[in-house]
Design a protein around this nucleic acid. Structure first.
Lengths: 70, 70
DNA sequence: ATAATATGTAAAGTGAGCTATACTTTAAAT
DNA sequence: ATTTAAAGTATAGCTCACTTTACATATTAT
């Protein structure tokens, strides 16, 4: 799973610290998310989506193994 | 955070086992999610949304503490 | 009534999301 | 060139999402 956090953050000229504070996690968490070290929890994904005024699906990109199950 | 899994599952007459198999978790996980024991991971939330043909935001209901951060 | 299917409870274990701290490197500003 | 802010790396630790297994309680059908 990929995400557009780095891209959106740059677009809007927000630092990792600012985003981290806004969504109430540490800067370390934002760094790790941007660098693909792990996936966000659902609540964090939602907070980030809210912060950017978008939906979770707009920001987090699921690959095909995670889709088309039924 | 609440979710509409139980409701949607009943509407479509799907058993917990069927849903669990479809999204590749144990039945126990579905039970715990429906009973509010814990929150789904982002990937699981996405799989469930895909299964029901809806978005994550349609199925998982975030309360106000998790919204309006900026 | 009883068999079969669906749902629930409990408890121990694993792994990943996230924290905390501390140090390093890169970029921007003066 | 040197300070300051921004971004990155590393590691140890905690919590909770999820598994596994085993048993208990509805619910439905015959």
């Amino acid at each position: 799973m990929k995400n557009r956090i780095h891209e959106l953050r740059k677009e809007r000229r927000v630092t990792q610290s600012e985003l981290a504070d806004a969504v109430e996690v540490t800067r370390q968490t934002i760094i790790s998310l941007e660098n693909g070290k792990y996936n966000a929890s659902l609540i964090l994904a939602h907070k980030i989506a809210q912060y950017f005024g978008m939906t979770i699906e707009d920001i987090f990109i699921f690959d095909k193994e995670e889709e088309n199950i039924c």
